[in-house]
């Protein structure tokens, strides 16, 4: 069976801007895959190309083994800001969406009721009176009306309050193993919580992909991270660290640095010593495993 999504050297140019720059990725079936990246990285453009809303300048995109337009019967989609006709009610919109998929009326009615109940929208008010969060939940419901093989969500939780966000994440997590979910987000905690796999994009390219564990491991190697907050100029410290055999990386932060160490014992002894030798004041010294934030910051870099 072909993968749910496969892009090869996908490029999209808008004037002088390369929104996608040879983006190649594969999304396996029945996985929940997070598309991560900073603003302007190309996440939404990638999704738009997959949905046939934008045409690639070059490269290919195949969805569910076919071209993007032919696959629509099996795709559910929620844009970052879903637009609904304000004069319809939520059940009417789901009926409209279901009919566009050619579903029998009995199926539409059954699924609509179940989905609206699932997302907590059992109101007969017109959509024009809905809050942003309610619209987002209706967006999820309409994206599932056709029981899609592939669910594409663009920033699905960005407009939601913490409880609404939790509900949507639970709903996505419940699809695990049944539907392929590809969702873009810049909320790393959301991605970490529900995703089987992550694809990190930056400047229109895939810069890393894998499971959260794989990405963490790749970030720290066999090493451990040390968070440092200190006072004084960082130049001397970085210079001295580069001469230390146990130090496999050092990234400066606004208040200090994150040091990657291959030899934890040596690092525990040498880091405070190096600071003291450099005449710098130690404010905080913390040993920890690499987080998804570290992976992201390492790959994407400071903005």
């Amino acid at each position: 069976m072909p993968p749910a999504v496969e892009t090869v050297e996908l490029t999209k140019v808008y004037g002088s801007v390369r929104a996608l720059d040879g983006l190649t990725m594969t999304v396996p079936r029945d996985r929940i895959v997070g598309l991560l990246g900073p603003n302007g990285a190309g996440k939404t453009t990638t999704l738009r190309v997959l949905l046939g809303l934008a045409h690639p300048t070059s490269g290919t995109a195949r969805v569910l083994g076919t071209d993007t337009r032919s696959a629509r019967q099996q795709i559910g989609f929620l844009p970052d800001v879903p637009g609904f006709h304000p004069w319809l009610t939520a059940p009417e919109w789901l009926q409209f969406a279901g009919r566009l998929f050619g579903l029998p009326e009995s199926v539409i009615s059954k699924r609509s009721a179940a989905l609206l109940d699932q997302v907590g929208l059992t109101t007969s008010r017109r959509i024009g009176t809905f809050s942003r969060g309610m619209k987002q939940r209706l967006g999820i419901a309409q994206a599932l009306i056709n029981a899609p093989d592939l669910l594409i969500l663009d920033e699905p939780t960005s407009a939601l309050d913490p409880l609404g966000r939790m509900d949507i994440l639970n709903l996505i997590a419940a699809l695990k193993g049944r539907t392929t979910v590809l969702f873009s987000t810049h909320l790393l905690a959301d991605a970490e919580r529900v995703c089987d796999q992550l694809v990190i994009v930056d400047q229109g390219k895939v810069v890393a992909s894998g499971t959260v564990a794989e990405l963490r491991h790749a970030r720290s190697g066999a090493g451990t991270l040390f968070d440092l907050d200190f006072t004084g100029p960082a130049d001397q410290l970085t210079q001295r660290l580069s001469a230390e055999p146990w130090c496999s990386g050092c990234e400066l932060t606004p208040t200090g640095a994150v040091i990657t160490a291959s030899d934890v014992t040596a690092a525990r002894i040498r880091i405070p010593a190096l600071l003291a030798e450099s005449g710098m004041g130690l404010v905080r010294f913390e040993e920890r495993e690499a987080s998804l934030e570290d992976v992201f910051a390492h790959l994407v870099g400071p903005r």
Partner: peptide, 16 residues
């Protein structure tokens, strides 16, 4: 108007 309000996107990502 449908393009501006985003309803065209939701409609046209369905098999129509």
């Amino acid at each position: 108007g449908e393009v501006r309000d985003g309803t065209a996107v939701l409609t046209l990502t369905k098999p129509v």
